[in-house]
Computed example of a mutant assay.
Amino acid sequence: MSKKGSSHPKALYQLRKITRISALVILAAVVIGFFLPTDYRVERSIIINKPHDAVVKALLGGDSLSDWMFVSGGKVDLRQGDYQQGDKATISYDDSKVQGELFFTAVTTNSIAFDVKPKPDVDVVHNTIYISGDNKSTNVDWEISGKLRTGFLSPYLAFFANKIAGRNFETSLQHLKEKVELTQ
């Protein structure tokens, strides 16, 4: 037999070995995914060098919410007046007629809780913003939590949610800080 013919079975053996190892890695990833949690929690904070009342006004202002809240590919629609418990805000997207919704579940002077349903077919994300401070500076702590239901990828997406979603909240908090600190 020629040298060409003798190397062919060796190449098939190598391909079979690579295919089996790949299948084992994929199977292990799926099995491990069954034991990982699909719920997530993301927290971010910022200190704003303005009084507590000014920060609360910006957080709840119907005309200011869209200025500071970052929505990837869209924005919160403007409205008149301040948001209160039970109020809803619409989220409009640039490239779609589909809209999301933001629903205020609790509003106090020290915390704001709201649920976000980014799109009709997406699960609700629970948000709570805690506000504490004095006449000089205000600490804003924002935390979100939820559960992902995207099949076997859910645990892996939940694992990386802090990094993925965290950037959006950092952007929103920075916009809030800039808006409030630049306002008289």
Rank of each mutant, 00 (worst) to 15 (best):
P37F: 11
T38D: 04
Y40T: 07
R41T: 11
V42Q: 07
E43T: 15
E43S: 15
E43A: 13
S45D: 14
I47H: 05
I48F: 08
I48S: 05
N49P: 01
K50E: 06
K50R: 14
P51T: 11
D53F: 11
D53M: 05
A54Q: 10
V55R: 02
V55L: 07
V56S: 10
V56H: 02
K57M: 04
L59Q: 10
L60D: 03
G61V: 07
G62H: 10
G62Y: 10
D63L: 07
L65Y: 14
D67K: 13
W68I: 06
V71W: 11
V71L: 10
S72E: 14
G73H: 13
G73Q: 03
G74E: 01
G74D: 04
V76C: 05
V76P: 04
L78E: 09
L78C: 00
G81S: 02
G81K: 03
D82P: 03
Q84L: 13
D94A: 10
D94K: 12
L102V: 15
F104S: 06
F104V: 03
A106W: 00
N110Q: 14
S111G: 01
F114H: 12
V116R: 09
K117F: 00
P118D: 01
P118Y: 11
P120G: 10
D121L: 12
D121E: 15
D121V: 08
V122C: 01
V124C: 06
V124F: 05
V125G: 02
N127E: 02
N127H: 14
N127R: 04
N127A: 09
T128K: 14
I129P: 03
I129M: 15
I129D: 04
I131Y: 11
S132R: 15
D134K: 08
D134C: 10
D134F: 06
N135R: 09
